[in-house]
Write a protein that binds this DNA or RNA. Structure first.
Lengths: 257, 257
DNA sequence: GCCTGTACTTGACCTAGGTCATGGCCCCGC
DNA sequence: GCGGGGCCATGACCTAGGTCAAGTACAGGC
């Protein structure tokens, strides 16, 4: 069910060139404000500049445009530069399963290393762009730069624990509270307000991610608002009682801490 | 709820020494039958011997004994050598959440790299043992041996996709069918029959892992048996109609392919 | 051998959350 | 300004699977 309406403006990786952008448009890690969250975390100036030589910038992508799709050959890891991406799969019944939302500084495509093919789709939820890091070169550089190797392993490790955190058996309220707090923390790390932010994803995507029906998300939002835990206005959210939200979310993992 | 009965024979890592085994008992990757599944996959003889220098063997552990616990300092990655381990967390309500079952050749502790502390517990489900790979040294060696670095990334990548596969919204039957097939494939890779095997975990652990009630697992087992899909006798399982199981499991990821 | 505890099964019932249906709202194109 | 299509909210109802309770059956201790 739930065919994503994603306007499907043609894929993908090659599109970087196809859209007429200079393929070697450098993405300077050495001056990037996200470098303390992202893969180059902790590198010195010299190593940052070696990263610069590796990384190129994608053209800005529009809402609904895909970064990669299931089955695409795995060539590169992507770091979100701006905007939000959603990763998802579609099972043989046609049901969509949202795997995650990816904000600036987070990596996409790590699950494709093993099979050397993408196992999920990644689509922009708003105007978004990525830094492209060809995997072969990245792996080589990781051999030479200990700090890069360490950070790559750290970020993959984090993905493993984030993914398992969601797996547990939690109620709708626990899931939604944890989801809000997870977003809040991630916005804060990126220099935005942890108490007031806009959801870039639809209720349907949230529901699907949390394994709930969209109606349930609506209802829990309404209940949380009635109970003075949050204030909701369409996609804008204000967290009113963070402590109580924490109590509800009950350490169901940190969710993208 | 569900306090694990785990007889709690004292932890853990240090116990390798404490139990009076030679701490430097080498675990020769170079002669290990699992090396084609495990971290040293694809290494040449010389590199295998460098791995040998890194890896030590744990003493055999008994059912209920813990390999590590939440909060333990992260020192090493473990490769299961024999037996089965279960990883799990306990939330603040005291509910246990089973994160996975780990067979010979699989790695444990990868999620601890990022926070440098173990985020979950790992307990032996039967008589089991591991190879201990101190992480600092392993990371260094991964800097020197490209093939090791590649395989470490591959295995972590696989963990990421396995973890997300379980996350989807599936019915009890889909989950259980996929679980059986996943086990079947893993046993086969290890040289055992893919059609007939013994479950090393209890119904309660299976249920918890699949986010079901133990009663539901019993009932679905009974239904599958009635429908000639499997034959169950206590913990021994025979897969009778693998095709139909595949249809039911509907590509909910490969589960530890 | 018997006793006890734990694991498992099975049935009866219940509930969280899913499904279905309706209606409002907002945004966008014209 | 008007009309149409997403998205979202909300009510009425339903069901998959959870919970509770009562066995059964095997394993381990003595």
């Amino acid at each position: 069910m739930v065919k994503s309406k994603t306007a499907d403006k043609e894929a993908v990786v090659g599109a970087i060139d196809a859209r007429g952008f200079h393929p070697k448009l450098q993405a300077a890690c050495s001056t990037c404000s996200l470098s303390q969250l992202c893969l180059p975390m902790g590198l010195n100036q010299a190593d940052l500049e070696r990263m610069d030589g590796l990384v190129t910038r994608s053209a800005p992508m529009h809402e609904g445009e895909h970064l990669f799709r299931v089955g695409d050959e795995f060539k590169a890891i992507y770091a979100v530069r701006a905007g939000t991406y959603k990763s998802y799969t579609v099972d043989s019944q046609g049901r969509e399963h949202v795997l995650g939302f990816h904000l600036a500084g987070e990596l996409l495509g790590l699950d494709a290393i093993y099979p050397e093919r993408h196992l999920c789709n990644a689509v922009a939820l708003d105007t978004a762009s990525v830094c492209v890091m060809p995997f072969g070169e990245l792996r080589e550089l990781a051999g030479q730069i200990g700090g890069l190797r360490a950070q790559l392993l750290r970020l993959m490790s984090k993905d493993i624990s984030d993914a398992t955190a969601l797996a547990g058996d939690f109620t709708a309220e626990e899931r939604i509270a944890a989801f809000m707090l997870g977003l809040s923390r991630r916005f804060e790390q990126r220099g935005f307000s942890p108490k007031e932010f806009n959801l870039t994803m639809s209720r349907r995507d949230i529901a699907n991610y949390l394994r709930l029906a969209p109606e349930t998300v609506s209802r829990v939002f309404a209940r949380f608002e009635k109970d003075q835990l949050i204030a909701v206005d369409r996609r804008s959210i204000r967290l009113v009682d963070i402590d109580k939200l924490h109590q509800m979310s009950l350490c169901m993992g940190e969710m993208h801490s």
